[in-house]
Structures are given as structure tokens and as C-alpha cells.
């Protein structure tokens, strides 16, 4: 797909995971802060007809909640959030995620921002898509140094769902919670089995037939550049300008005045 930016490729890949008929139906999807690519993927799926109620936590206007994130977590506690997105400073081969940091607790070598709601959401929502654009041995490690949220839980521990997949800037991995193991699912353009293996710190399965990650169809690209961009421009102006070349300059020259 020449002319398809990496962002559009990732959006298309995540949209396919959202609407995967084999997965728990994504009727109520929540998207957290600083997540324009997952948000765009949700909008794309919705605007292509998927029956999705989309809760964008950082929407400045029309925010879905009247009790902030407290309401989000109460919904998730009841099982009323079907799909959520998480990332990690480190992610390992068992789908554990680390948002604390490296070195001694609480991240005395390199500090990450903190665990946010991950320790709760990973266990209470029906499925999670892990998304981290940087695909390197620094991020994808054999074993996370600290577990903010566990990839799997022992039998007898309450848990509704797991990682469905891990989407990176190089590939898509599927996660099998029964085996606590990833399998390579598709390669982004320019990547090979070897380049992904070399950039990945954890071990994973490599099935015989590996597809190439498909970018958006022409119809999808039109929806993305039009109504999806319209829906996102207020929350993510920089992203919309970078990807679709639309929207006023976010800073509006204010930095000068400041």
C-alpha cells in the first residue's frame, strides 16, 4: 500500500481486531488518554456499521461520563465495558505489562508514568487490545521488571478477559491466554519474520502462514479522512493534522505569548 502512512495501517489493523467475529462482541468500548490510533480504529469500526457505543475518556466536549473515570471503573467492575486498550513501558511474552518503571521499585532506574487503571481494567473488561508503537527489545522484554497488570491469572481468581492481541509498529501478535503465549499474526510492510524476531525480546510462536498486515481499503481511507477525522479533530488536533493534513495549528502561536 504505497502512500499509506504507518498510522493508517495501525488503525486498519486495530479496527479488524475490534470487529473480529470470533472475539467477545465490542458493544461498549472505552479509549483512554493519548490514544488517537485506537480511537480512530474505534470510530472506523463504528462508522462502517459496527454496533459500538464509544466512550472517549478525554473528549473535552460531550464526555461520556458525568462521574469521570470513577464511572468508567464502576462500569468495568460490573462487566459493562467490552473492550479497552492498554500499553506498557515494558510488555513481556506472558502479556504482563509494566507501567511502573525499571530498576528497584518504584522505578528508580527509569520511571514510567504509573499503573493508571491497568491493574483493574485488564481483569474486569472482556477483552483488551495491547498497543505499543515502539517494537524493540527495550519494550518487548522476556520478563517485565515490575507487573502493573498481569497477563494471566491463576484459576480461581476472578477475571473476565485477557489480551486479544498486541499491535506494534512492526506486526500484530495474537495472544492465547490458555498457553500464556503470543503468536505472530501478521507482518507490517517492510518487516520479515527475521526482523520481528530480532526486535522482540520475548519468545513467541510463528505459524506457517503469516499474512501481511493490510492497510485500509479505499472505502476505509475515505471514511478515515472524512467523518473519522471530523470526530477526532477537537480531541487530537495534532494527530489529525499529521495524518490527514487537516485542522488549525493546535498551539495557535500561543507558545510565543506564553
Amino acid at each position: 500500500m504505497s502512500g499509506t502512512s504507518n498510522e493508517l495501517l495501525l488503525i486498519a489493523a486495530i479496527a479488524r481486531l475490534i470487529t473480529d467475529p470470533a472475539a467477545h462482541p465490542a458493544r461498549h468500548v472505552a479509549v483512554g488518554a493519548a490514544s488517537p490510533i485506537p480511537a480512530a480504529a474505534c470510530w472506523l469500526a463504528k462508522m462502517q456499521g459496527a454496533d459500538i457505543r464509544l466512550a472517549l475518556l478525554h473528549r473535552p466536549r460531550g464526555n461520556p461520563f458525568t462521574e469521570g473515570t470513577r464511572e468508567l471503573f464502576d462500569l468495568a467492575g460490573q462487566g459493562r465495558i467490552d473492550l479497552f486498550f492498554l500499553g506498557g513501558g515494558q510488555i513481556d511474552g506472558q502479556a504482563n505489562i509494566n507501567l511502573i518503571g525499571t530498576g528497584a521499585w518504584p522505578g528508580t532506574a527509569v520511571r514510567f508514568p504509573g499503573s493508571f487503571g491497568s491493574a483493574f481494567m485488564y481483569l474486569t473488561v472482556h477483552r483488551t487490545i495491547l498497543f505499543r508503537e515502539e517494537h524493540s527489545r527495550r519494550v518487548l522484554v522476556p520478563r517485565v521488571e515490575h507487573i502493573s497488570a498481569p497477563g494471566v491469572s491463576p484459576a480461581g481468581t476472578f477475571r473476565r478477559g485477557h489480551a486479544q492481541a498486541l499491535v506494534t509498529g512492526r506486526c500484530v501478535f495474537r495472544f492465547d491466554p490458555g498457553r500464556a503465549r503470543f503468536a505472530l499474526a501478521s507482518l507490517h510492510p517492510g518487516e520479515t519474520r527475521e526482523t520481528v524476531r530480532a526486535a522482540t525480546g520475548f519468545d513467541y510462536d510463528e505459524p506457517a502462514g503469516i499474512a501481511n498486515t493490510a492497510g485500509p481499503t479505499e472505502a476505509q481511507a475515505t471514511i478515515l479522512a472524512g467523518p473519522v477525522c471530523d470526530a477526532m479533530i477537537e480531541t487530537y488536533p495534532d494527530f489529525c493534522r499529521r495524518v490527514w493534513g487537516r485542522g488549525a495549528k493546535e498551539n495557535g502561536g500561543k507558545e510565543e505569548a506564553a
Binding site: 471503573f73 481483569l123 491469572s153 481468581t157
Partner: peptide
Amino acid sequence: DATCPAMHTRLQAAEKGVPFMPLRGVLGSD
């Protein structure tokens, strides 16, 4: 370090005047 719903839940316990409140999830986190 904490996790978001734990902070909310601890306040919800305080606003009810009860000494503690349970929360799902979190088990298995360091």
C-alpha cells in the same frame, strides 16, 4: 503507587463512613 479505581474506592468507603471496601481485579499486580 496505586491503581485508579483503588483511589476512587477508598474515597467511596470514606464517604460512606465504612472502614474498607472491596475491589475486583488488581490481584497479580506487583
